[in-house]
Structure formats: structure tokens, C-alpha cells
Design a protein around this nucleic acid. Structure first.
Ligand code: FES
Ligand code: FES
Lengths: 144, 144
DNA sequence: TTATATTAAGACATAAGAGTCTTTTATCAC
DNA sequence: GTGATAAAAGACTCTTATGTCTTAATATAA
């Protein structure tokens, strides 16, 4: 697996919030219902993003969660870093200590290029652009 | 994590066998000791590769495991496919059902290119070449 | 102020991955 | 044949990821 389930759910939830950016707060229950994700599990995941300042939350009626920054300023990499950390992009893929061009393992040559490209694209792709593509039906957000 | 621990250990063990290709059988204990991997765990992993025909094994004194094909004919992708399957390269990275260019998710555009390149390189990199680089001290096999 | 809606927090449960241990089976050396 | 060596097989444990449930805290609305 490239990404953990938590991370995937987190990305999809932030996508949902980006698409619904005109609403200040969206109940987590609404997101979990539409996505078919466990409500309590998603709640815990979104708490991490709330603590990171990426999204904001409010309790009570009319409460929920919402983006705390412009969707266009949040990258896919931002969410991945919060939920899965950066080990995918920093540690040796064969589990050897340290990963550097002058201390390579058998997969280093392949993975160093791939991961650098992947990281760059994840950093450049923002949720504003993705939300627009979802709204315009160019990409999907749900299982349909 | 890109690869499971089983997969990483499997790759490293096949690397060891490739470097020691002149020996018909190498005891698993020797590999696990040198690599600092649990002997019984590695045994189970190598059984998968044995059943797949990639390596051969023999019980008893002078027994062990050894490559069942020329090292140059085994690719990194071969080992990954046996131990981790192909879900990394086939399934939607956001967990949506199906993954196709005409049915993309928000990460499809980024990941489809990355994964295709990665897969190609993993298929092209063979253990003969890697063993030679290890022998020539260009890449490392152990934690040192 | 009371009822309702909603997140926060944390205990608890389940499943899968990772790792250990024991017993069985096969091969070699003597 | 007997004893030593080593893989095969499978039961078992430990850890982590995933998922569920309950209670508390807080905000709104009537
Ligand atoms: S040293 Fe292994 S991935 Fe860089
Ligand atoms: S549809 Fe999600 S990765 Fe292709």
C-alpha cells in the first residue's frame, strides 16, 4: 500500500470539504455517510488535521468541520505528511539505515528518482484545483 | 510503506543468493544471521518464493535454498509480485473501485505516470546486475 | 433553561502484519 | 541404520492498523 487507510480517508474528506468550500462547517457525519467511511474513525482522522491547523471544527448544532485555509493552498503532500508522515519519502525502501546517494541500496537508484517526482507532483497538486475538476466531473470523489 | 517487510526481506534474501550464486544451496540460517532477520520469519517468506519456482530448496545437511533461475532472469518486480501482489500497481490508490484513465480519482493523474515508470524500472532491474554492483561495492546489501 | 446536534476524548474490539516456537520430514555423513 | 543438519508446516504470540462504542464537552435553537 502506498498510503494508509487513514491517509486515504483524510484526503477524500479534505476533497469533500474543498468541493463544499462555500459552507463554513460540514458535519463529519455527512462526509462519513456519503463516503461510506466509519464516522468515529473519520472523526479521529480529522482531529489530526484540525490539530495541524489545516481544518477548523466547531461543536454543537450548525457545527462541523471546514477548511481553515484556502483549498488552493493545501497540497496533497500536506495531508499525506500529517497522516502518514514522511517516511515514504525519507527512509530507505529496503529498510537499511540511512538513505543517500552516496550510500545506496539495490532499490535506491530506481526509487530516488520516482519518489522525487512523486513528491514534487504531490506538492504541486492543490485541493482547489482538484475540487474544480471534481465539480466539473473530470474526476470522481465517490465510488459510483 | 511502499513494500511490506516480508517483501523487503524477500528481496534482500534473493540479493544474498544472487551474490552467492556459485553456491548451489545456502542455509537460510546463514542469510537470517547476516541480515539480522528472524530465521523462522524468513523461512516462511522464502517458502513462498520456493513454491513460486523462483528459488529451490533442499532439506538436510548441505541443504538450504538457492536460485532456481539465472539471477539475470529474475527482476525486482518478480519478487514484489510474489510477496506483495500487484495491488500497488493495479488498484486505485484512493481505494475507489476500479482504476482507469477514463474513470480517474484525484490522484490518478499523478500516480498513473509514477507507477508506470516505477513498474517498468522494477521489471528491467534484474538480480544479476544488482549482485554485480553489490560485489563491486557500488551498492550495499547490509546495514553497515 | 432545556433539548438537540455535533466534535473531543478515550476505552475497547477486531484484523492483519510481523515475529517466535515446536514438531515433522527429508537429506547427508558416518 | 544412526545422528546431525536443515527446510516444511503449523500453532502461537506480539504489535500495529483499523474500526466501534461510550461518555464528556460545547454550541445552537426553542
Ligand atoms: S538507500 Fe535504500 S532507498 Fe536509498
Ligand atoms: S482511479 Fe484512483 S488511482 Fe486510478
Amino acid at each position: 500500500m502506498l498510503l494508509s487507510k487513514s491517509c486515504v480517508y483524510g484526503i477524500r474528506a479534505v476533497l469533500y470539504l474543498s468541493v463544499n468550500d462555500e459552507r463554513e462547517y460540514v458535519p463529519i457525519k455527512e462526509i462519513s455517510d456519503k463516503m461510506g467511511i466509519s464516522f468515529h474513525f473519520l472523526t479521529k482522522i480529522l482531529q489530526v488535521l484540525t490539530n495541524a491547523g489545516m481544518i477548523k471544527s466547531m461543536k454543537g448544532a450548525k457545527g462541523g468541520v471546514g477548511l481553515n485555509q484556502p483549498a488552493s493552498s493545501i497540497s496533497l503532500y500536506d495531508v499525506i505528511r500529517e497522516l502518514d508522515g514522511e517516511t515514504l519519502f525519507e527512509e530507505c525502501v529496503l529498510g537499511l539505515p540511512g538513505c543517500a546517494d552516496d550510500n545506496p541500496c539495490s532499490m535506491h537508484k530506481i526509487w530516488r528518482v520516482t519518489k522525487a517526482e512523486l513528491k514534487k507532483e504531490l506538492e504541486e497538486e492543490n485541493f482547489g484545483s482538484l475540487a474544480q475538476q471534481i465539480t466539473e466531473d473530470e474526476i470522481r470523489l465517490y465510488d459510483v
